[in-house]
Write a protein that binds this DNA or RNA. Structure first.
Length: 203
DNA sequence: TGCCAGGCCCTCTTTAGGGCCTT
């Protein structure tokens, strides 16, 4: 059984919203989390082979000049494949990061075997009183550690890791005699919001 | 030529529409 607290938490910065629209990754950041401790990290810029627009430069602080000096997406993502091994994967709005991971790994013919969990879907279910479920809002709402940097890959991945740890603690408080597994979290994340409370009580 | 993300989730729903989240 795979424990929920042995995961890779990752975040992409990209040229846009969709690989289907020829968007590419420009930065990958990730932390390796074991038993709630960050034991390793990964962050690299990558050259997408095209220029990014001014919105992305302003949003991320990653400039075309920075990307021009970076290794190719294929080179960086091949190194990232070695970093994640067979760990399960966590991201905030994981559907976004998963589609870029799938697309970039296809470009460099890499594969991964872990499953994804999504801190956004989990938050919508176990933190229903939060004002919204943006990563920055949740960091403030839960008073999680941060260094004031947002929209850079390692900073966002690290904040997501703190959020993930906090979410595991919230679940463990509600289910003190239950092992909080990755599979259980994905079961909770698939439940209709209105049924989550009853589902947790049934466990 | 004209289009341009897409999965999730709620509701004034399911023969649909729109807001939320990610860059």
């Amino acid at each position: 059984m795979t424990l929920a607290n042995k995961v890779i938490v990752l975040d992409f910065e990209t040229t846009g919203l969709s690989p289907n629209n020829a968007d590419r990754a420009i930065e990958i950041g990730a932390v390796k989390l074991i038993d709630g401790e960050i034991v390793d990290s990964f962050q690299e810029l990558m050259n997408p082979g095209r220029s990014v627009n001014s919105f992305i430069e302003n949003y991320t602080g990653i400039t075309n000049a920075m990307l021009k000096e970076a290794d190719s997406c294929e080179a960086v993502m091949t190194r990232f494949a070695n970093f994640i091994e067979d760990f399960n994967l966590v991201a905030h709005n994981a559907s976004f990061d998963k589609k870029f991971l799938d697309a970039e790994f296809e470009h460099c013919q890499q594969q991964y075997s872990g499953q994804f969990a999504c801190s956004l879907l989990l938050s919508r279910r176990i933190s229903q009183d939060a004002p919204n479920h943006k990563l920055g809002t949740l960091v403030e709402y839960h008073q999680l550690p941060n260094d004031g940097v947002f929209h850079r890959a390692l900073a966002d991945a690290t904040m997501t890791a703190h959020l993930w740890n906090h979410q595991l603690q919230l679940l463990q408080q509600q289910l003190p005699h239950k092992a909080i597994t990755f599979e259980l979290i994905n079961q909770i994340s698939k439940r209709p919001k209105a049924q989550v409370s009853g589902y947790l009580q049934s466990l």
